[in-house]
Design a protein around this nucleic acid. Structure first.
Lengths: 195, 195
DNA sequence: GCAAATCTTGCACCGAGTGCAAACATCTGC
DNA sequence: GCAGATGTTTGCACTCGGTGCAAGATTTGC
């Protein structure tokens, strides 16, 4: 299942992690927009060009591995029991998002960065678009809609709405300073739009 | 109500419209990303610097006046009869989006550009974030939620879901080559996520 | 130890966007 | 008609994120 990563691969992961950690510290201190890539590479001690070998964009430092995480959610969704409704299964699958990411304090920092920087919000929303495409087929199946080559807009709307609920829940959680319960906020959001 | 715009203001609007029209033609011919601002200003016959006096970004050429349109939707929502449910009122309010924008052919072109260019999609989603904040208070009231200084996440989720339904409907409409009925697609999307 | 694959780096370049200041046009009161 | 305030256009220099390329250092497999 999990084949051993080569030494190079491990080094690469470690380097990525260290760069991201340093960058996030700088972002927290000086703000996302105000921190330039040049400052980051200077702090880490690598060349500007190498940085862009590790991360495709400045925003990627904060966003994490979009595809891997999306794939985790998809796998979790797929492995939910068949009897569950689409909403139940989606709720359970989205819980894997809570396992990843460090301690609550860092999560709060990341949420604050999203709040502050428009370009970060924009990329975050693009990330959701990819997840939408990734999760839509399974939702489509669970909604009892016929399989189709093009994604069914109903399934896409479903996924988009669920992800929007996650977003508003996380945002409200951030605004509460980490005091509110994200799961409760999510459930309330879902309930509100289901009428 | 509508105070007469000054001559300067009229000239400004005309210039904006002409620049946007030229740009969209170029985008349709060569693609959004492949068309540079320099090409646009050369085609229009103004300086690069003046362009950025009219439009804050290249994406703004396609996105239109976000705030004005959002305000139209908000006003429409506010003027819906009190007896309507939140979903009914929102659906009716969103119909103002169909009045604006030129003929279907141009709408189709714009939808295609959104489909093609990631940066355009990103800005489009940011636009929705602003609309979300703008429309949330009225939805909050209509959902029977208590007024609050911070926006209620339930109202935000509601608006976000509604806008997501618009997006998937427009996208499916685009993929059908303009054949499908956007209103039907929207209604089906809403029905799917309400279970 | 050798050869191939991989990593890092520098360099030159592109495209979007901004701050500034000078030139130009336009509208006002007198 | 003139002077001055106000707005517009433009060029210039600059910042910042991001990319293509090629050469040199390093690691890996054998």
């Amino acid at each position: 299942m999990a084949d051993t990563p080569t030494l190079r691969e491990r080094a690469r992961r470690a380097a990525r992690a260290e760069i991201a950690a340093t960058a996030i510290r700088l972002f927290a201190e000086n703000g996302f927009e105000a921190t330039t890539v040049d400052q980051i590479v200077a702090a880490v001690g690598i060349s500007r060009r190498s940085f862009f070998h590790y991360f495709g964009s400045k925003e990627d430092l904060v966003l994490g591995d979009v595809d891997a995480l999306g794939e985790s959610v998809r796998a979790a969704l797929e492995s939910r029991p068949e009897e569950e409704s689409a909403w139940e299964a989606m709720r359970a699958a989205l819980l894997v998002l809570r396992q990843v990411g460090g301690d609550p304090a860092e999560q709060l920092t990341l949420a604050g960065l999203h709040h502050e920087a428009p370009s970060l919000r924009a990329r975050h929303l693009e990330k959701h678009l990819r997840w939408r495409a990734l999760l839509a087929p399974e939702v489509q199946r669970r909604l009892g809609l016929p399989a189709s080559p093009e994604p069914d807009p109903r399934a896409e709307a479903f996924v988009a709405a669920a992800l929007a609920c996650v977003d508003v829940a996380v945002d409200a959680w951030y605004r509460s300073g980490g005091k509110d319960d994200p799961e409760r906020l999510f459930d309330e959001a879902v309930a509100a739009l289901r009428g």
